[in-house]
Design a protein around this nucleic acid. Structure first.
Lengths: 204, 204
DNA sequence: GTCTATACGCAGATAGAC
DNA sequence: GTCTATCTGCGTATAGAC
């Protein structure tokens, strides 16, 4: 699930790979749709635009996806599965501060992996548009469930907010630090550092 | 504060009957549109829906607003003006940590005031939909400008992220703490406390 | 200030040929 | 797997009566 599109394959015009010959149209649809949905919004992006950017007609899209919504949801699936797995893992562990730190690390690893932050941006920006669908609607709940493990019953509201912000800092780094001043590796680095500080924070 | 209609026209325009009979349809349109735009998204909300919720027809809306976009922008105006004012104020002050703290306080005050967080939610959720319009497009820039005052040239990336998160915590508190467990006053309180901690943070 | 009626276009989606 | 052609409906917006 990590190695999908190696970005450094820009030099190889030949498909030296094993299988993918037509470069999997389905994947290309997802790629283009993800970009357009994120840039313009889900509702504002028409199937015509996606088809034109891909160089095919609208009808062709319907061979690969049943509806427009399916295109969006196909990209959300991974994230839903990841959240469920992570929540299951936490539940299987004895509560401890180290488990919390490990949750932050796993969340950060997954987020920085591949291009998951692109999918995240898409989901953040289109939460209202897709909120009717069960898979999307439950994401907020899953997020709240996850952060609920970050605090103990007696913790103050201040601690709760700060520890909640731990996961948040992992997201914020992608749109609050200007793109041209910091590399992706630096983003991953600094956001994890701040997140771990926040998860370990207590009343001051 | 958010009283646009009464900028300085407090002189009774019509003596006999109070203008409050039709309850200012324009304001009611804004009120309903804000709710629907936030809940469903700007693109997903049609003028028909707004008109029906208001109990009038689509055509009636066009007497009060020239286009659908105008309805949205009419609600953004206040926030744009506030950000400009705040940036101007910072520029007029000699740089100091106390000025930074004051920025956080003013930002928080304004946000918790009235129903500005409703407008904020609307803007956050529809930034992509309205990003083409200059007023909306400049909001990200204004935000980055404001946080640029939070750090000194020599500050580490860690400090920059943490201080940036100060403003962020003021927003996050509204959707990351479940509604039924905390009052609005508590939200305002705790988020300001955390924000001030973050603005004062340094390398650890 | 609100209505009815209507123009006009583009949206999502399907059928069936190749 | 992709095409052309087409259906159906709803979107924004306008004209003009009351």
């Amino acid at each position: 699930m990590s190695e999908r599109t190696s970005t450094e394959s820009a030099f190889a015009p030949e498909p030296a790979n094993e299988d993918e010959r037509p470069r999997d149209t389905r994947a290309r649809i997802q790629e283009i749709a993800l970009r357009l949905f994120t840039e313009q919004g889900y509702e504002a992006t028409s199937l015509r635009e996606i088809a034109e950017a891909l160089g095919v007609t609208k009808a062709a899209l319907y061979y690969h996806f049943k509806t427009k919504e399916d295109i969006a949801l196909s990209m959300v699936a991974d994230r839903v599965a990841f959240m469920d797995d992570l929540i299951d893992w936490v539940r299987s562990q004895p509560p401890s501060q180290e488990v919390r730190r490990e949750v932050v690390r796993r969340y950060a690893d997954w987020l920085h992996n591949d291009r998951q932050h692109d999918v995240m941006r898409f989901m953040e920006r289109n939460q209202t548009a897709l909120k009717d669908h069960p898979q999307m609607g439950q994401m907020r709940t899953k997020m709240l469930t996850l952060v609920s493990f970050f605090t103990d019953p007696g913790d103050s509201l201040t601690v709760r907010l700060k520890r909640t912000m731990a996961l948040f800092s992992l997201h914020a780094v992608w749109f609050m630090l200007p793109d041209d001043q910091v590399t992706e590796a630096e983003r991953a680095d600094v956001s994890l550092k701040v997140a771990l500080e926040l998860i370990d924070s207590s009343d001051s």
